[in-house]
Design a protein around this nucleic acid. Structure first.
Length: 924
DNA sequence: GAGCACTGC
């Protein structure tokens, strides 16, 4: 067996037929048989497909067009089927289409698109849909009622052990920007009180954890949000925009910016977007809510929502859609029929928007307006406007598949296409057909709007203008390394341009640190000839205190440069940015179902991202954006939108979630962009092997239980198995530690040796990475969760706190599931056996010289050098690993040694004795 | 001897 990475990929890329691949594999000494032939065929197919996909743009476009056309035809049939049905009951509501049954032509009112449809098909589809839907809802309801009953007894769910979260501490750092709230609550915000004696749930207990933070996090959080809103309202919109292009000329200083004339003017961001409506009217200044652009469209919006079941909303930054729409709907009486739910992709957004809306409505947060995020439920029986993370709504679906207490669902930031929103799209689309009284609002960015409209049966698109200053865009074809170009562009702006801070978008920590160093050197070199330049790095892994420094005030004549990753694209808004430098690149995670391997790759950003990045320069005044790529690259090389996450990630848990929702035929499940067949099949196979599905593909009892845990199914399986081995508590800790994503240990460049020594103490006795993680957690617990201890041991306190939250949640869930939380910290073999109960497909066998082969796979991998097992001599022969990653080489991460005979004990359905004996005959 | 973009339940 050859040792080089990805040899199968290498072989197949050069092969002309499946047979050739087989020959080459045999030549490499791979054991033959039918398996290898089918593998070869698969490889060949996938490579050919890839080649085809890389073919001419026009051909790909044509294929795409045909696909869309076909899908639209299918959709139209359904629409007609449904709208006919609606007419029988209520001609006023439902889908806004009229049909002419004599000619069989359908007319969409808003876009006058015409399609032919077939009456018979329509009947059949309607009947089938109705039947399957009813069955699934009935089945779910019965199961879930029982479950709810069981759960109600445990009201204290998740209220303890919380303290100021990192986000809130971060927001605290923002305080200096905020002014007093000056609103309804006299500048102070208090959490809801208990409704004593009303027969309602005791709110004091419910908010126990949150109220603890009363004085710490929340008032600041609210001020921050208020500040955000103030920002949005002070600006003047497109009508008042002045073309800034003539105000400054980009000046060139050869010594700083070598290639004169390479900077090409592009269109301003303004032109790239579609036209804007006239919305700014000074008459309305004075009332915050009325100052928002959306206010002038209020009646129109309400009318459109009334007339259409689904509405796509394109609302730019600062339009006020997130805070205002739910309020308008509430005022219009929609909450009489049920709650308004609004989803957000991020926790902070859900919290802060809810807080803002509560203030605007003059109610207490948690009463009429509330939010729900993981570890925190700030809603009550009174709540009618509910903000939540998208993942949370997905969880809601599993307890209440028809969301019958809800009248409007707004999916905000839909263009971000998180896995959760993607699944929600399909579920709500289906639900909307089932429930004609339900309204759907999908908010997206400009480039996506049509796609969303197409998906939701050609729903009308409403565009709400934002408050954004114009941003002039300049292109610079790079001649040097991109990092050097970034440095040159930064200095160019610094020397030639008017005051205003600079935001540079780079790919990751390494690039950021390099650019930082280069800039510092240049600044030193030019000395006092140049104004002061204050440089701040910014990426998610940066300790929070350092992140907060980007908000530090600077001396009057100085200029701030922030070197940031994608974090500044959506998650964080920075004040005073006037110039953006966009490398056009980002790191994107991808996952290969074939090799079960994840990796991070530097990729071109999408046009949507490029616009988002440029827009960051126009938040507080007119700005400029230098793109370090050619206009042609933007036009022709960059995709409109990034590949949605669901097509780039492992979807095992998605499949399990869908199964738990009673959706069995998810191959025909209406994904907006479906995951590949291959990844679906892989996921099904794994779930079957884990015992979550039976041979018919139905969810088993274990599968149902697994779906309740917010974890990767392998981890859930391991948790469930732990009870049997008497070490549920230990395994829960390990699961929590594994789910915080490789961010436990850190080693600063200058103190690497010390950091590694600290880490070694936990690995003592070559117990393996899993047990080492357990020891880390337990040691931390012994110090009473001390942050000082974390610092001393080079451990990230932030990750540890998160692990603790996850662990507490898992413990609660285990208890509810009736799993006994037994403990046996000393029986390491038992713990490893429990781990293997979930991870038996992840077994590596030593091949010689430190290289491992994956059982049930063909990859050759190595133990990650950061693993405690990497240097153990002699090399462990059999190992279980948590995941595979492709970086410079293919590595196993989080590795522990195991005994092969355990495999036959734990997964006899997966491994045969014969198969294992091939490798180490005498070890079984 | 390597290197982790960013979220979320």
């Amino acid at each position: 067996m050859p040792n080089e990475p990805s040899y199968t990929a290498a072989i197949s890329q050069n092969a002309n037929s499946p047979e050739e691949i087989v020959d080459k594999l045999l030549e490499y000494g791979v054991d033959g048989g039918d398996d290898i032939r089918s593998l070869a065929a698969d490889l060949f197919l996938s490579v050919s497909r890839k080649a085809a996909a890389q073919g001419s743009n026009s051909r790909r476009d044509e294929v795409k067009k045909n696909e869309i056309l076909a899908r639209k035809q299918r959709q139209y049939r359904l629409i007609v089927a449904e709208s006919d049905e609606d007419k029988d009951h209520d001609s006023g509501t439902g889908v806004a289409y009229s049909s002419n049954s004599a000619t069989g032509v359908v007319v969409g009112e808003d876009n006058n698109k015409k399609k032919r449809m077939d009456t018979d098909d329509r009947e059949v589809i309607r009947a089938l849909r109705k039947k399957s839907r009813q069955e699934y809802l009935k089945k779910r309801e019965k199961e879930k009622l029982q479950q709810l009953d069981d759960w109600i007894e445990h009201e204290e769910f998740l209220i303890e052990g919380l303290e100021l979260s990192e986000e809130e501490r971060f927001l605290e750092a923002n305080k200096k920007f905020s002014e007093s709230v000056g609103g309804s609550d006299g500048g102070e915000y208090r959490f809801p009180e208990a409704y004593d004696g009303d027969g309602l749930i005791d709110q004091r207990r419910r908010f126990g954890a949150a109220s603890k933070r009363d004085t710490g996090g929340f008032e600041k959080l609210e001020s921050w949000d208020d500040h955000q809103l103030q920002k949005a309202t002070v600006k003047f919109g497109s009508k008042n925009r002045k073309r800034e292009a003539d105000d400054y000329q980009l000046l060139f200083d050869d010594s700083l910016y070598k290639v004169e004339g390479q900077l090409l003017p592009g269109k301003s961001l303004d032109d790239e977007n579609t036209q804007k409506l006239d919305y700014v009217s000074k008459k309305h200044i004075g009332d915050g809510r009325k100052r928002l652009p959306i206010y002038q469209l209020k009646d129109k919006v309400l009318q459109m929502i009334h007339d259409n079941q689904v509405l796509v909303i394109v609302g730019e930054t600062g339009s006020g859609k997130t805070t205002q729409l739910p309020q308008y709907l509430h005022e219009a009486g929609y909450t009489k029929q049920g709650k308004i739910i609004c989803t957000q992709p991020r926790r902070v957004a859900a919290m802060s928007v809810a807080a803002r809306v509560a203030v605007e409505m003059g109610v207490k947060l948690g009463h009429e307006v509330g939010y729900k995020i993981r570890f925190e439920d700030c809603t009550s029986e009174k709540t009618v406007v509910e903000y939540m993370t998208d993942g949370m709504l997905l969880r809601e679906f599993s307890s209440q598949p028809d969301l019958k207490n809800c009248s409007v669902i707004m999916v905000d930031e839909a263009h971000e296409r998180t896995v959760s929103t993607d699944i929600i799209f399909s579920l709500v689309k289906d639900l909307a057909r089932q429930r004609s009284d339900l309204k759907l609002l999908i908010s997206s960015a400009t480039l996506d709007a049509e796609k969303f409209s197409d998906y939701f049966d050609c729903a009308p698109i409403l565009e709400i203008p934002g408050r954004q200053y114009p941003v002039d865009i300049l292109y610079k074809q790079p001649v040097d390394e991109i990092l050097e170009e970034a440095v040159a562009a930064t200095l160019h702006i610094h020397v030639t341009q008017q005051p205003g801070d600079i935001l540079v978008f780079l790919t990751g920590q390494e690039d950021i640190e390099t650019v930082e160093e280069m800039l510092r050197e240049k600044v030193k070199h030019y000395g006092s000839k140049m104004g002061e330049l204050i440089i701040h790095p910014l990426f998610a892994n940066l300790p929070t205190e350092l992140q907060a420094r980007i908000f530090d005030p600077i001396p009057e004549k100085a200029r701030k440069v922030i070197l940031a990753t994608n974090i500044a694209e959506t998650s964080l808004t920075i004040e005073g940015i006037r110039y953006v430098i966009d490398s056009g690149l980002c790191k994107l995670s991808s996952y290969s179902p074939r090799t079960d391997m994840g990796s991070l790759q530097v990729t071109d950003i999408s046009k949507a991202s490029a616009m988002q990045r440029a827009g960051r320069a126009g938040r507080t005044g007119p700005g400029k954006c230098i793109r370090l790529y050619a206009p042609d690259h933007f036009q022709n090389q960059m995709e409109d939108n990034c590949v949605p996450e669901i097509q780039r990630s492992d979807i095992v848990s998605v499949v399990l979630t869908l199964k738990a929702l009673g959706i069995n035929d998810f191959k025909n499940f209406d994904f907006m962009d479906p995951p590949s067949d291959e990844s679906m099949i892989k996921a099904l196979e794994l779930l079957y092997a884990l015992g979550a599905l039976n041979s018919k593909g139905d969810l088993t009892r274990i599968g149902k239980l697994m779906a309740e845990f917010p974890l990767d199914p392998k981890l859930s399986r391991m948790l469930i198995a732990a009870e049997k081995y008497g070490c549920a508590e230990e395994v829960t800790t390990i699961a929590a530690m594994l789910s915080v994503d490789n961010a436990i240990f850190y080693s600063p460049k200058n103190l690497q040796a010390m950091a590694e020594n600290a880490k070694k103490r936990f690995e003592d006795g070559d117990v393996g990475d899993h047990i080492a993680l357990l020891r880390v957690y337990n040691s931390w617990k012994e110090t009473d969760f001390s942050s000082g201890w974390c610092r001393e041991n080079f451990i990230q306190a932030r990750s540890m706190k998160r692990a603790r939250d996850v662990r507490d949640q898992l413990m609660n869930l285990m208890e509810k599931a009736g799993i006994e939380l037994n403990s046996n910290p000393n029986d390491l073999d038992a713990i490893k056996k429990a781990i293997m109960s979930g991870f038996f497909p992840h077994i590596g066998i030593l091949q010689g010289s430190g290289s491992y082969r994956i059982l049930k796979g063909l990859q050759n991998v190595q133990i990650h050098p950061k693993s405690g097992m990497a240097k153990v001599q002699p090399n462990p022969r059999w190992v279980v690993f948590h995941e595979l990653v492709l970086t410079r080489k293919e590595y196993m991460r989080q590795v522990s040694e195991v005994k092969p005979k355990w495999l036959l004990e734990i997964a006899p359905h997966y491994y045969e004795r014969k198969e294992l004996e091939k490798f180490f005959p005498r070890q079984l």
